[in-house]
Design a protein around this nucleic acid. Structure first.
Length: 427
RNA sequence: GGAAGGGUGGCAGAGCGGUUGAAUGCAACGGUCUUGAAAACCGUCGAUGGGCGACCAUCCGUGGGUUCAAAUCCCACCCCUUCCGCCA
């Protein structure tokens, strides 16, 4: 949620930043609603002040046993007017709030300008200078041949975009997850969390999935809960509604969760394989910081995600998203794109964002400075560290051997009981 | 699912129709004292919106209702705790 004060003080700047996203975001509705709401509030508050005044007078008269009928008569006339005024104000306030929560975050000043993903900028590659490599078989063929990915059973038991991982495949998922969590907790200073996989409306509103993106979420039929589309939701909402002491910051959390997405707008895209599933595992990273340290935190968080890929020996590049490609809540985002020789291109495996105070405002999460009693919104950041399913894809395609087996990266071997290869089943 | 109790400021915890935005304690902050610290003492100390300001309005789980007036009474819902039942 944008800062009302900032919109009032620098409307043309806010407008310019909004337009840089490429959507047709417009402040005219907002200002019209705001003016109407303000007028109604002034009127309502005047009536409320009068009501309080009269009530106090009545109280005083009754206490001393005097007659208060004159005041009661005025109240009889004022009461209905006040009720009406309050109701009208509430309606306008809701409309204004709806408009405000519809607006996305403002891109940070150093985000490259661009209309869509074509405007994104590669900021670094690993290994340095890496742009492409030889092509190989795609992961779904590899996985099915090795007997570790079973798409057809999943299609029977649920439907499209689900997978059974079997044998070494299931174990590899567990290994990747354990490896990532250990790296982040032992070397990067994160606290490990295992959160609920369901969340309520308030939480999804806090991180920005609701109300605009409800069609992307799985929702339960009989209970007011949603399946989380990312661990960002439960982790970030860990501080919803709270005033956090400055000394506790920054908070750094990591969590493995399954993530659930309806992929409503993605019909026909990535229909085969693990790239786009309704359910996938992800290790998430979340920071809650002081405002002045959040941009530096984004650099750290991104490096932490990159470290996962380096240790797994997976070539990747780091991309700064342009204004037109930013997510709704984000002010600045780096995507990590891993090289997939089965597809002959880079695919997103992590997305690291600084939302500044955008989520904090929606969540009402503030910090209290040790030097003053005033409170101000915190900054929140999130990033994948990294997507487990896509990491598995990258391992299968990058470590495929001429003999059809897959070598297990050194970093994962301790998590695979020392196993070095995944070989096809011997019939 | 059944029964009982409870949701109040950063925390603990009073208030149960009328200057109560809310006693008290802890924490925090400022000061006195001290070589420094602790202790003690004095003072300050919720949030949001509006106004240059004196101030004004709103907020005691959420939403309705009663009343001239609601943190306080009534109704519904949500959440938490304990006991019983069921269960990994």
């Amino acid at each position: 949620m944008l800062d009302l004060k900032a919109i009032r003080e620098r409307p043309e700047w806010v407008d310019e930043r909004l337009k840089s996203r490429g959507g047709r975001y417009d402040l005219t509705t907002f200002f019209a609603l705001e003016a109407a709401q303000r007028a109604l509030r002034t009127q309502t508050e005047g009536l409320q002040a009068r009501r309080n005044e009269i009530s106090r007078a009545i109280g005083r008269l009754k206490a001393s046993g005097e007659d208060a009928s004159e005041w009661l008569a005025e109240m009889g006339e004022l009461g209905p007017r006040l009720k009406e005024s309050e109701a009208a104000m509430r309606v306008k306030e809701e409309e204004l709030q709806a408009e405000l929560t519809r607006l996305p975050n403002l891109p940070a000043e150093d985000v490259p300008l661009g209309p869509d993903e074509s405007g994104n900028v590669v900021v670094r590659s690993w290994p340095e200078g890496f742009t492409s490599g030889p092509l190989t078989e795609n992961h779904w063929d590899v996985g099915e041949r090795l007997g570790i990915l079973d798409f057809s059973s999943a299609a029977e038991t649920v439907g499209a975009r689900f997978t059974f991982f079997r044998g070494d495949g299931a174990r590899l998922v567990r290994a990747l997850t354990g490896f990532m969590l250990d790296l982040h907790t032992r070397e990067h200073g994160y606290e490990e969390i295992l959160p609920p996989f369901l969340a309520n409306k308030e939480s999804l509103f806090g991180t920005g999935q609701l109300p605009k993106f409800e069609e992307d979420l799985f929702c339960l039929r009989d209970d007011p809960f949603y399946l989380i589309p990312t661990a960002e939701v439960p982790l970030t909402n860990l501080v919803r509604g709270q005033i956090v002491e400055e000394a506790r910051l920054p908070l750094k959390w990591t969590a493995w969760t399954a993530c659930f997405r309806r992929e409503a707008g993605a019909a026909g895209r990535d229909t085969r394989g693990l790239i786009r599933q309704h359910q996938f595992d992800k290790v998430e990273l979340v920071w809650i910081t002081r405002p002045e340290e959040s941009m530096e935190a984004l650099e750290s968080l991104t490096r932490h995600a990159e470290e996962v890929l380096k240790r797994l020996e997976l070539p990747y590049r780091t991309v700064a998203l342009c204004t037109g490609d930013l997510g709704f809540a984000s002010a600045k985002t780096y995507d990590l794109e891993v090289w997939l020789p089965g597809q002959g291109r880079f695919r997103e495996i992590s997305s690291c964002s600084n939302t500044l105070d955008f989520q904090a405002r929606r969540m009402k999460t503030r910090l209290r400075r040790s030097t003053s009693k005033a409170v101000e919104p915190v900054h929140t950041l999130n990033g994948s560290g990294v997507a487990v399913g896509r990491a598995l894809v990258a391992v299968l395609e990058n470590f495929l051997q001429p003999d059809g087996s897959v070598v297990i990266p050194d970093a994962l071997r301790p998590y695979m009981g020392g196993q070095t290869h995944i070989k096809p089943p011997t019939p």
